[in-house]
């Protein structure tokens, strides 16, 4: 009996020893010499592997940071200036200040605003629907409502609102990684400058049709009238293809344009409630 136990112990020990030797030899022979700073940088990055930096994951971004001479054009939208600052200290580089951003949905085509003209019955995938046809409303620029952006969001910062049939971006959770921007086949989602208290003013429409058809398709469409353009004191608004655009970096949140818009296509969000609301086009924002 004892000899059996002894034999087992010796055999297993020998096996273990042999395996250890093999592992050691292999580890030595195939050792990859790597810059130790890559690991250090990798540690200060958020580790979400969202790809918001434009590279395949945090590790790849760390390698790029270590290799590059300056941080110009490189940014981790999730970690923001904090993570980039830490990385700059490790690598002894100059940090580049980058404004924090936030994703914004530029469509307000709820069933109430934009009448449904057909019923989509295919695979619940925006790209499939987009390739198939113009969509369930007469507006073939607007949101298709299949939720590709929600699926693409790795931070649980989006959900589909069953009433508006539009995705909703949760300001506190959005890190502006840009995954939803890439996922949307209609380029409705835009990354804009994140203002104090997440205040936002933007044209919530991407319809490039002329005023008449645009308005017919959706009552809160941008009709390209240009009134906002004239009233803006900071030259922040431009007009192209019957569609106005507010540059979030030039905009000073004066809210003059929103008061002027005849269709209510300009949304103002997270501002304190004004005493007098401009009549006629109250905008309900579900958030």
């Amino acid at each position: 009996m004892s000899s059996t136990v002894l034999f087992t112990v010796i055999m297993l020990s020998l096996l273990g020893l042999l395996a250890a030797v093999i592992l050691y030899v292999v580890a030595q022979k195939f050792k990859v010499v790597e810059d130790p700073r890559i690991d250090l940088v990798n540690e200060v990055l958020p580790g979400a592997n969202c790809g918001g930096c434009g590279f395949t994951g945090c590790r790849a971004f760390s390698e790029v940071l270590v290799r590059s001479d300056s941080f110009e054009g490189l940014n981790c939208p999730v970690g923001g200036s904090e993570a980039m600052g830490k990385a700059a200290v490790i690598l002894d580089r100059q940090p580049v200040a980058v404004e924090p951003k936030i994703a914004v949905l530029r469509c307000n085509g709820t069933p109430e605003h934009s009448q449904r003209t057909s019923n989509y019955d295919g695979a619940m995938n925006c790209r499939v629907a987009h390739a198939l046809y113009g969509g369930t409303t007469a507006c073939h620029y607007g949101c298709l409502g299949c939720g590709d952006c929600v699926t693409s969001c790795k931070f649980d910062a989006m959900y589909m609102d069953p009433v508006t049939q539009l995705p909703v971006i949760i300001d506190d959770k959005c890190v502006a990684c840009g995954a939803c921007v890439k996922a949307c086949p209609r380029n409705i989602i835009e990354l804009r400058k994140r203002n104090r208290k997440d205040r936002k003013i933007y044209i919530s429409c991407v319809n490039k049709d002329k005023g008449g058809p645009a308005r017919k398709a959706c009552i809160v469409a941008c009709i390209g009238c240009g009134k906002c353009l004239k009233v803006c004191p900071y030259d922040a608004i431009t007009m192209a293809d019957n569609l106005a655009f507010i540059d979030s970096f030039k905009c000073k949140l004066c809210r003059k344009c929103a008061a002027e818009c005849p269709t209510g296509a300009i949304l103002e969000i997270n501002f304190p409630v004004k005493e007098e609301k401009p009549a006629g086009h109250a905008v309900t924002e579900v958030n």
Partner: peptide, 12 residues
């Protein structure tokens, strides 16, 4: 399953 919907997307 909407097999062809996705295959068509992949094909294009």
């Amino acid at each position: 399953r909407p097999l062809l919907d996705y295959i068509r997307l992949g094909k294009t």
